[in-house]
Deep mutational scan, measured.
Amino acid sequence: MEVRTIKVFTTVDNINLHTQVVDMSMTYGQQFGPTYLDGADVTKIKPHNSHEGKTFYVLPNDDTLRVEAFEYYHTTDPSFLGRYMSALNHTKKWKYPQVNGLTSIKWADNNCYLATALLTLQQIELKFNPPALQDAYYRARAGEAANFCALILAYCNKTVGELGDVRETMSYLFQHANLDSCKRVLNVVCKTCGQQQTTLKGVEAVMYMGTLSYEQFKKGVQIPCTCGKQATKYLVQQESPFVMMSAPPAQYELKHGTFTCASEYTGNYQCGHYKHITSKETLYCIDGALLTKSSEYKGPITDVFYKENSYTTTIK
Rank of each mutant, 00 (worst) to 15 (best):
Arg4Gly: 12
Arg4Glu: 14
Arg4Tyr: 14
Lys7Leu: 11
Lys7Asp: 14
Thr11Asp: 01
Thr11Cys: 03
Asp13Lys: 05
Asn14Ile: 12
Asn16Gly: 08
Leu17Thr: 15
Leu17Lys: 12
Leu17Arg: 13
His18Glu: 13
His18Tyr: 11
His18Arg: 08
Thr19Trp: 08
Thr19Asp: 13
Thr19Ile: 10
Thr19Val: 12
Thr19Cys: 11
Gln20Met: 14
Val22Cys: 14
Asp23Ile: 11
Asp23Asn: 11
Ser25Leu: 10
Thr27Pro: 13
Thr27Ala: 13
Gly29Gln: 08
Gly29Ala: 09
Gln30Pro: 11
Phe32Tyr: 07
Pro34Cys: 15
Pro34Ile: 11
Tyr36Gly: 04
Gly39Gln: 09
Ala40Glu: 13
Ala40Met: 14
Asp41Leu: 10
Val42Phe: 14
Val42Asn: 07
Val42Cys: 12
Thr43Ser: 12
Ile45His: 14
Lys46Ala: 11
Pro47Trp: 04
Pro47Arg: 04
His48Arg: 13
Asn49Arg: 11
Lys54Ala: 14
Phe56Glu: 05
Tyr57Ser: 06
Val58Cys: 10
Val58Pro: 04
Leu59His: 05
Pro60Asp: 13
Asp62Val: 06
Asp63Cys: 08
Thr64Val: 12
Thr64Trp: 09
Leu65Val: 11
Leu65Glu: 06
Arg66Asp: 09
Glu68Ser: 07
Ala69Met: 14
Phe70Ala: 14
Tyr72Val: 04
Tyr72His: 12
His74Asp: 01
Thr75Arg: 11
Asp77Leu: 05
Pro78Asp: 10
Pro78Asn: 10
Pro78Arg: 01
Ser79Cys: 10
Ser79Gly: 13
Leu81Tyr: 12
Gly82Lys: 15
Gly82Thr: 13
Gly82Leu: 15
Arg83Phe: 03
Met85Phe: 08
Ser86Thr: 12
Ser86His: 11
Ala87Trp: 15
Leu88Ala: 00
Leu88Thr: 05
Lys92Asp: 05
Lys92Arg: 14
Lys92Val: 07
Lys93Asn: 10
Trp94Pro: 03
Lys95Phe: 10
Tyr96Leu: 06
Pro97Ile: 12
Pro97Glu: 15
Gly101Ser: 08
Gly101Cys: 07
Gly101Asn: 09
Ser104Asn: 06
Ile105Ala: 02
Ile105Val: 11
Ala108Asn: 03
Asn110Glu: 03
Leu114Val: 06
Ala115Tyr: 07
Thr116Leu: 06
Ala117Gln: 00
Ala117Thr: 11
Leu119Ile: 09
Leu121Gln: 03
Leu121His: 04
Gln122His: 04
Gln122Ile: 02
Glu125Trp: 01
Glu125Phe: 07
Leu126Gly: 08
Asn129Leu: 06
Asn129Thr: 10
Asn129Trp: 15
Ala132Lys: 00
Leu133Pro: 03
Leu133Trp: 02
Leu133Glu: 01
Leu133Asn: 02
Gln134Asp: 13
Asp135Thr: 08
Asp135Leu: 07
Ala136Arg: 04
Ala136Met: 07
Tyr138Arg: 14
Arg139Met: 11
Arg141Val: 11
Gly143Ile: 05
Gly143Trp: 02
Glu144Phe: 07
Ala146Asp: 06
Ala146Tyr: 06
Cys149Leu: 07
Cys149Phe: 04
Cys149Gln: 07
Leu151Thr: 01
Leu153Ala: 00
Leu153Asp: 02
Tyr155Trp: 01
Cys156Ser: 09
Asn157Val: 05
Lys158Asn: 05
Thr159Tyr: 11
Gly161Ala: 06
Gly161Ser: 01
Glu162Ala: 03
Leu163Ser: 06
Leu163Cys: 15
Val166Asp: 05
Arg167Leu: 00
Glu168Thr: 14
Met170Tyr: 00
Met170Lys: 03
Phe174Met: 06
His176Tyr: 14
Asn178Trp: 03
Asn178Leu: 05
Leu179His: 07
Asp180Val: 06
Asp180Thr: 10
Ser181Gln: 15
Lys183Ala: 06
Arg184Asn: 01
Val185Asn: 02
Asn187Arg: 12
Val189His: 11
Cys190Arg: 05
Cys193Val: 07
Cys193Glu: 00
Gly194Pro: 05
Gly194Ile: 08
Gly194Thr: 03
Gly194Ser: 05
Gly194Tyr: 04
Gln196Leu: 09
Thr198His: 13
Thr199Ser: 08
Thr199Asn: 06
Leu200Ile: 08
Leu200Asn: 02
Val203Lys: 12
Val203Arg: 10
Val203Glu: 00
Glu204Thr: 07
Ala205Ile: 04
Tyr208Gln: 00
Tyr208Met: 06
Met209Glu: 05
Gly210Trp: 00
Leu212Phe: 02
Leu212Met: 03
Leu212Asp: 03
Ser213Asp: 12
Ser213Pro: 08
Tyr214Glu: 14
Tyr214Asp: 02
Tyr214Cys: 01
Phe217Tyr: 02
Lys219Gly: 07
Val221Glu: 02
Val221Pro: 00
Val221Ile: 15
Val221Asn: 00
Gln222Asn: 10
Pro224Cys: 11
Pro224Ala: 12
Pro224Phe: 12
Cys225Leu: 04
Cys225Lys: 03
Thr226Trp: 03
Thr226Gly: 13
Thr226Tyr: 09
Gly228Lys: 01
Lys229Thr: 12
Ala231Met: 02
Thr232Gly: 02
Tyr234Leu: 06
Leu235Met: 03
Val236Met: 10
Gln237Leu: 13
Glu239Pro: 01
Ser240Ile: 02
Ser240Tyr: 01
Pro241Trp: 04
Met244His: 03
Met245Phe: 11
Ser246Gly: 00
Ala247Phe: 04
Ala247Ile: 01
Ala247Asp: 02
Ala250Pro: 02
Ala250Asp: 08
Tyr252Pro: 01
Tyr252Leu: 07
Glu253Trp: 04
Glu253Val: 13
Leu254Ala: 05
Lys255Pro: 06
Lys255Cys: 05
His256Arg: 09
Gly257Ser: 06
Thr258Phe: 05
Thr258Ser: 07
Thr258Val: 04
Thr260Gly: 03
Ala262Val: 03
Glu264Ala: 15
Glu264Lys: 00
Glu264Tyr: 09
Thr266Phe: 01
Gly267Asn: 15
Asn268Pro: 15
Asn268Glu: 15
Asn268Asp: 12
Tyr269Arg: 15
Gln270Asp: 15
Gln270Met: 09
Gln270His: 08
Cys271His: 13
Cys271Asn: 10
Gly272Tyr: 05
His273Pro: 04
Tyr274Pro: 00
Tyr274His: 00
Tyr274Asn: 04
Tyr274Leu: 05
Lys275Thr: 15
Lys275Phe: 08
His276Thr: 03
Ile277Ser: 01
Thr278Gly: 10
Thr278Leu: 08
Ser279Lys: 02
Ser279Phe: 03
Lys280Arg: 13
Glu281Trp: 07
Leu283Cys: 08
Tyr284Ile: 14
Cys285Ala: 11
Cys285Leu: 12
Asp287His: 00
Asp287Cys: 02
Gly288Asp: 06
Gly288Gln: 00
Ala289Ser: 12
Leu290His: 15
Leu291Gly: 11
Thr292Phe: 10
Ser294Arg: 14
Ser294Gly: 04
Ser295Ala: 13
Ser295Trp: 10
Gly299His: 10
Gly299Met: 04
Gly299Glu: 12
Gly299Leu: 00
Pro300Lys: 06
Phe305Ile: 14
Lys307Leu: 09
Ser310His: 13
Ser310Leu: 14
Tyr311Met: 05
Thr312Lys: 05
Thr314Ser: 15
Ile315Lys: 15
Lys316Tyr: 15
